[in-house]
Nucleic acid binder design. Structure first.
Length: 859
RNA sequence: GCGCGAUUAGCUCAGUGGUAGAGCGCCUGCUUCACACGCAGGAAGUCGCAGGUUCGAACCCUGUAUCGCGCACCA
């Protein structure tokens, strides 16, 4: 192989390796493989979507799990795809239509409009899929699915028919969340309560039977007065009890001042407002229920788009609901019945998609009574499915405990059409089936909530053969924001239709936020484009940098600097390998056990084992940042900073072969361990150095050996750090070579003199038995290092320095002594802890003596 | 209102009972024959606050503050 370039250039290699993986079919899942199966279904991104940092985190995590699984001998299925995103996609295409052709979907008609959406989907729907490829995702692209694929769509309809047959799906006229912009009903989950600063408007109404007596009503929505059909008070409320059964005059609309009954209902709070509630059954959920209890008429004064209809009276008709509010207040003021406007903050439901206030609206919709709720709760409670982090289990359980029927119909065109047919005008007949029952039958115009299709994702994306090998899936990687939307529903669907849980573990990633802690969003424009980051730092740098700061389930404050560090780490790894390459060809079969190794080499192998264990533990517990950190520490610290530097002393010695063998052995394992996080660079280095012609994905995962740590290695490293510190204390430039001397603490130290000399950049390093005159002493665990002071520093500064050191050591000794002289400590603390303190005390004493000797030697 | 997280060095975060850590940033010195996307050294923290348990608390308990997130029909 040609020489590695001086710096790693990701752009030159990423494309090449991705095509190579694809061409070798390495992402393909073989259901007939004898290997144990491992599977993940991708949380399908919207077809309208573009890659965000959230996707990067989520999909890099899945890729890591999948590559690791392949390396540990599993047959892996990572099943990709997208969902049709009903509202979002329809909105995008409608907007385009309006802009380019000044038409609405109604101008085109349903069939033509849907044709246009498909056209749009074919053209733009694949963007995010291609972006995932740039990221290195090892999905089985031959199995890519879309929630509107023919087979999948049919399954969705079959499920509807089945649940209808079981009596779980029903049609009903109910209060639903209505989006006046999308003109469709929404599920409860698609409504986000937001605190809104508004006013509590107080106005008074006269009691018909008691002229001159008024009730004061407080409301946040005066624009709905025209829809009021009663006034309610709490029957226990002594202030108003006597009025129950009487009537008030409704002030609006002016031309139709209706007479409303005063009713008593327990739902009315004493303390809130005035304790008198205007009841608007058509436009408030609570009011609707009160209305049902008291058989009140329902007076709908709003159009679907949130404007007022003719029932609101001629002063209001056509006004938007918020304009109408202003107008209503004006009218109350003109009538002289507005008592006060009190600033008031309340929560108003907003549409998740369009971000406008949702309007409670009475309409005919399809609802689902969820199947298998008890089983779904039990599956998580009994840990058949494990959540990481576990705290989401409680949230999940609470939601299921209070679960409400799901409004699954949407007044859209883009989606799975409801398989219900109507016939006849007067007494319509209804049939629930997929095919048309024949002439004269008209299909329900509505479509299903997108989640009603994606809740089948885990099993319906697989054919029978795949399901046999790969279902239940191993793990689901997703964000906690779709715990209810998707995760919980998928569990219920899985239990209902496969009789099994859909996945064994759920790993919830954190949410990527900006430096101010705000969620990244398109509208805020605070999300960097991951493709730009890939271009700048490489996919590996982005993946590693992001995963390293993504502790389990905690939100991530994104900082581009972290990605820079990922890139830097790639470069470090690159150069370590490049350095190895400069020593000659590698040996793919390198076996350290066949060589007599330096203590540095033996200790490195022990640290490698410890790293492999840390990494294994990380995978076990989904601690992705721990894994990244362990590999970073080992590669940069143990391997590059310490071992390679020590190894340089062996290159001209008989140790050369053994040391190179350890390097080869270790680099192979580093590349394997890092491959899941940094697939491109590891592949490039693996092949570039000549370790093999297979992909790392097909290689084996490193196992621990039987290396024994040698504490002498750390003693040398620590001594080096102390000596360098001493040199820095005297401001000796690091390029100035000094003639160090050493009084060794043990015989073995002679063996590491060449390495020590290299570490210290020493011009020479000779041993001496007694402290030489004119040197500064640095007591270490490997002996006393003597730094020549001549021409550098005078004896009095050295004396001052030593006295300072002695002061610090004495303080430490005092600290330990205090603890050891505490009888209860010695009595109660576990023996090893006490022993450790004793040892510590002794170490400090030794150091003190050495320092004092050095001080005396200065005279 | 209930529940859940977070609070440790300037920044981003590790650290679940025994000598407070990492990376970045900062300061100092270095183009030392892999790497300036680098090397070496350094300064820097009353671990949000107040109690408690313990020989010993960043860690366990109680309370509290601030920030964030869920859930909830107070109009």
């Amino acid at each position: 192989m040609s020489e590695l370039s001086k710096a790693y250039e990701p752009a030159l290699v990423e494309e090449k390796w991705y095509s190579w993986w694809i061409s070798r079919g390495l992402f393909r899942a073989d259901p007939s493989s004898p290997k144990p199966g491992y599977s993940i279904v991708i949380p399908p991104p919207n077809v309208t979507g573009v890659l965000t940092l959230g996707h990067v985190l989520n999909n890099a995590t899945q890729d890591i799990l999948c590559r690791h699984a392949r390396q540990t001998g599993h047959e892996v299925l990572w099943l990709p795809g997208t969902d049709h995103a009903g509202i979002a996609t329809q909105t995008v295409v409608e907007r385009k239509l309006r802009k380019e052709e000044k038409k609405t979907r109604h101008d085109l008609g349903r069939e033509e409009f849907l044709r246009r959406v498909w056209e749009w989907k074919e053209k733009h729907g694949g963007i995010i899929i291609n972006q995932l490829k740039k990221l290195g995702c090892s999905c089985d692209w031959e199995r890519e699915r879309f929630t509107m694929d023919e087979a999948y769509a049919r399954k969705v309809q079959e499920v509807f028919v089945d649940l209808h047959g079981k009596g779980l799906i029903y049609r009903g006229k109910r209060m639903v969340n209505w989006c006046p912009v999308s003109l469709t009903a929404l599920s409860d989950e698609e409504v986000l309560p937001k605190p809104q600063k508004g006013y509590l408007y107080h106005f008074k109404v006269e009691i018909v039977e008691r002229p001159g007596t008024f009730l004061e009503i407080a409301t946040t929505r005066p624009e709905t007065i025209m829809g009021d059909t009663a006034v309610a008070v709490n029957p226990q409320d002594p202030r108003y009890q006597e009025f129950i059964g009487l009537h008030v005059r409704r002030p609006l609309p002016l031309d139709d001042p209706a007479i409303l009954p005063i009713i008593g209902d327990d739902d009315v709070e004493f303390e809130f407002g005035t304790g008198v509630l205007k009841v608007t059954p058509a436009h408030d959920k609570t009011d609707y229920e009160i209305g049902l209890r008291h058989k009140l008429p329902v007076l709908d004064i709003l159009n679907p788009d949130g404007t007022m209809n003719e029932l609101a009276g001629e002063d209001f008709v056509g006004l938007d609901r918020f304009e109408a509010r202003v107008e209503a207040v004006d009218k109350l003021r003109e009538l002289g019945i507005l008592v006060k406007e009190e600033p008031h903050e309340n929560h108003v439901g907003f549409s998740e998609r369009t971000d406008v206030p949702v309007e409670p609206r009475l309409s005919e919709q399809w609802f689902l009574k969820y199947p298998k709720t008890a089983e779904a709760r039990a599956a998580v409670r009994d840990h058949l499915i494990r959540f990481f982090p576990a705290r989401w289990e409680k949230v999940y359980d609470h939601w299921l405990e209070n679960i409400q029927d799901w409004c699954i119909s949407r007044q859209l065109w883009w989606g799975h059409r409801i398989p219900v047919w109507y016939s006849g005008d007067e007494t319509p007949q209804i049939k629930c089936q997929i095919e048309s029952p024949g002439e004269g039958w008209v299909q329900d115009p509505d479509v299903l909530d997108t989640w009603f299709s994606s809740w089948l994702w885990a099993h319906e994306t697989m054919d029978a053969e795949a399901r046999k090998a790969f279902y239940p899936t191993s793990v689901l990687v997703t964000g906690p924001d779709i715990l209810f939307f998707w995760v919980a529903r998928m569990i219920m669907a899985g239990l209902e239709y496969t009789g099994e849980i859909p996945f064994r573990s759920v790993y919830f990633t954190g949410i990527v936020r900006d430096k101010q802690g705000r969620k990244m969003s398109k509208s805020l424009g605070n999300s960097p484009d991951p493709l730009d980051l890939i271009a700048k730092y490489g996919a590996d740098g982005l993946r590693f940098g992001l995963l390293r700061i993504a502790p389990q389930g905690q939100d991530i404050k994104f900082d581009e600097q972290q990605i820079v560090e990922g890139r830097n780490f790639c470069n470090k790894l690159w150069n370590a390998c490049r350095f190895r390459q400069m020593q000659g060809a590698v040996d793919p079969e390198a076996d350290p056990s066949k060589h007599d190794l330096s203590l540095f080499a033996r200790d490195l192998l022990a640290k490698l084992d410890a790293t492999i264990l840390r990494v294994a533990e990380g995978y076990e517990n989904f601690r992705f940042s721990d894994i990244a950190q362990a590999l970073y520490d080992f590669t940069w610290g143990d391997f590059c900073d310490r071992f390679i530097e020590a190894a340089k002393a062996d290159f001209d010695s008989p140790r050369r072969a053994g040391t190179l063998a350890v390097m080869d052995f270790t680099i192979q394992r580093i590349l394997k361990l890092l491959h899941p996080y940094m697939p491109f660079i590891t592949e490039e280095l693996w092949s570039g150095l000549g370790f093999g012609s297979q992909s790392l994905m097909e290689s084996s995962w490193p196992t621990v050996g039987n290396a024994v740590p040698d504490p002498r290695a750390d003693a040398v490293y620590a001594a080096v750090a102390q000596a360098r510190n001493l040199r820095a204390t005297y401001h000796i430039p690091s390029n100035k070579r000094l003639a160090w001397k050493l009084t060794p603490a043990a015989e073995w130290v002679e063996g590491v003199l060449p390495a020590l000399a290299l570490f210290l950049q020493a011009s020479s390093l000779e041993c001496c038995e007694v402290a030489p005159v004119g040197f500064a002493a640095c007591p270490t665990d490997v002996g006393i290092l003597h730094l020549p002071l001549e021409g550098v520093v005078d004896a009095s500064s050295e004396r001052r320095r030593l006295q300072g050191e002695i002061g610090k050591v004495e303080a430490e000794i005092a600290k330990v002594a205090a603890k050891l002289s505490n009888e209860t400590f010695v009595k109660n603390a576990p023996a090893p802890v006490v022993a450790e303190h004793r040892q510590r005390q002794q170490d400090w004493m030794t150091r003190l003596e050495e320092l004092q000797t050095a001080l005396r030697a200065l005279g």
